[in-house]
Each structure stands twice: as structure tokens, then as C-alpha cells.
Amino acid sequence: MPEYPEVERIPSDLEELLDRFFVVCRQEVVQMRDALQGRDYNTLVRLGHTARGTGSGYGFKGMGRIGHDIELAALEQDSDALERHVDSLARYLDTVQVEFDG
């Protein structure tokens, strides 16, 4: 498990989008917790996949890794692992430090 906070290098042209990005990501964590409580693994697969793609697309490699872990745990219907990974994603979003390229 990575040390927190992680430092991610993000293209500077994405800087103006980051506030909204973090709002949406935190909303998705709430949706993940709701889906986990309801044992809605299909929603967790989708949200994990979204976190993986969105995180990686913006340059948040740690988020991409965690999203992948959520997706895999949801496919396996492993509630304990899902809880750990969703908590990890929430902690990541709260602590990640951003440095801008260019």
C-alpha cells in the first residue's frame, strides 16, 4: 500500500478542471459506499472502472490503481476488500498532492 500523501504530476492544462474533478470523485465514493451497503456489485464494477479510467486519464495513477482494485474486488464480490479499497480511494482523494507539468 502506498504512503500517503501521494504526489501526482498532472498536465497544467487540467488545473482549472481539478476542483470539479474532486467533487465528482467524492460523490462517486459516496455512491460506492451506498452500493457496497446494498451489495450492488454491478454498480461497484462500473464505478471502479470509471475511477480507473478517469484517474488514469487525468494523470492520477494512484486513483487508477485503486479503481482497478475496486473493479476486481467487485467482480469477485469481495465485500471486505471493497470496503478497504473504497476507504483507500477516499483517503487518496483527501491527501493527494498535485504538481503541475509545464
Rank of each mutant, 00 (worst) to 15 (best):
R65D: 15
F60G: 11
T43K: 07
A35D: 02
Y92T: 06
Y4L: 14
G67I: 14
R65C: 08
L18Y: 09
A90K: 08
H85P: 04
E76T: 00
E83Y: 07
E71A: 12
Y58N: 08
V96M: 05
G53S: 14
Y58W: 02
G62A: 07
A81W: 03
S56E: 11
V30E: 09
V30G: 01
L75A: 09
D87C: 06
Y58F: 15
D34P: 03
E76P: 00
E16K: 14
E3R: 13
R46S: 11
A90Q: 14
M32C: 09
D40T: 08
E16T: 05
G38C: 10
P5Y: 02
L44S: 05
G67S: 12
G57P: 13
M32E: 01
E83H: 12
H49W: 02
V23P: 00
R91T: 10
A74F: 04
H49S: 05
Y4K: 10
E76M: 13
L18T: 05
E3G: 10
S12H: 12
S56C: 05
D94Y: 04
E6D: 11
L89I: 02
Q37A: 08
H85T: 00
S88I: 01
Q31W: 10
Y41R: 03
A90T: 10
M63F: 04
D87M: 05
D69Y: 10
V98F: 06
N42W: 02
L75K: 15
L75Y: 14
T43H: 08
M1T: 13
Y58L: 05
V29M: 02
L14G: 03
